[in-house]
Design a protein around this nucleic acid. Structure first.
Lengths: 195, 195
DNA sequence: ACCGTATCTGAACGTCTGTTCAGATAGAAC
DNA sequence: GTTCTATCTGAACAGACGTTCAGATACGGT
């Protein structure tokens, strides 16, 4: 008989995380109940509270860890001096990183309004940190004469918005390979910031 | 004494629509209760059911009417033969139309997953209709040699994603005027599709 | 002045919500 | 083989949910 009680902390913890992630992404935070998450894990609802103080923290941790992973992964890359090359690297990194974590990405910007205001402020700060990395590239390229940008703040947001669009339609095994998609976006991004 | 019963159909109907729109946009469909909507209107929850068969229909009608308005408004414009000019017109139209209706726009793409599958299919069809208008412009310009686009399907989605980014940060009375924003986006969009 | 009807109230329905907790259980430690 | 403790169950909590409906009310038409 399968064990239903006893010591499972190292198994149940991650499974709760995964179940919450998948369910929040598919149905939205507000539409998912603690009992649904528990059922997905194969446990009663009360057991979840050994792993999270409440539902809100469950959401916050998913978003917080995602943003930290994103920033850490980007920082881990080799940094180039050449602005155009750095931009190309950013485009490739952004597309590949985000396509590997569709659920986290979806939650990280659909569920912002379900965060308490303290939690919201923390996530927003991390997002700005990441966006600043891109803006630094654009500014540097602009100063060096490699780019021709009217407003680096707008350009930053426009480029990120454009790249985020990939998530809404790209599916592995579709008409285009990841390399082709990356190349197409790089072309458009590069052109949009050069004269 | 204010009337609390009697004939108000022409007043209450629109007010329910407005209240639902504002609340869904701010807190999300699943997080808003019929009682909250009713309270905003100044009425009991049961009274809402004189105007909508259920909560789901309330959401669907908001989205459906928004998409129809969008398509009709775009069709109402003068159509140009010149592809570059048509693209410029599209960019300006898209930015201005969407910035005038932030709540509708927000709902129309945040709440897709809360639609029943029939309702979802209808909204998606309307969205594709609108996107096809842009793709037609890109294809025409590509054929005429005005544009240099690797994949018009990707370019369509990339341009719309970029433009939709405006909604997340633009606020009237901010650092930039609407004209400046429109100009900046037009520059970037135009460059991204020309060699 | 009265009636008919559109509109709204207020209560009720069954079900679901997040969260708590005493008690049961199974693996780890000795 | 016994004890200890981390983990889970199962029931309970007070309140909120979408929806229904009989009865009250006030306007429009006559």
């Amino acid at each position: 008989m399968a064990r239903t009680q006893g010591s499972h902390s190292d198994i149940t913890g991650p499974r709760i995380r995964e179940a919450a992630l998948a369910l929040f992404a598919r149905h939205g935070y507000a539409a998912v109940s603690m009992r649904q998450i528990a059922a997905e894990v194969g446990v009663q609802a009360g057991a979840l509270y050994n792993y999270t103080p409440d539902k809100q923290s469950l959401l916050f941790r998913l978003m917080y860890e995602h943003m930290q992973d994103l920033i850490a992964a980007y920082a881990d890359q080799d940094q180039t001096e050449d602005a155009a090359e750095a931009l190309r690297q950013f485009v490739g990194f952004h597309i590949r990183f985000h396509l590997q974590r569709p659920d986290e990405v979806f939650i990280a910007y659909m569920e912002l309004r379900n965060l308490s205001s303290d939690n919201f402020a923390q996530i927003e700060a991390l997002r700005r940190t990441y966006e600043n990395a891109l803006e630094a590239i654009l500014r540097k390229g602009q100063a060096a004469g490699a780019f021709d940008i009217a407003d680096t703040k707008i350009a930053t947001l426009a480029v990120i918005a454009m790249l985020n669009g990939v998530m809404t339609w790209y599916r592995a095994g579709g008409r285009l390979s990841l390399d082709e998609v990356e190349q197409a976006y790089w072309d458009m991004v590069h052109r949009s910031v050069t004269a």
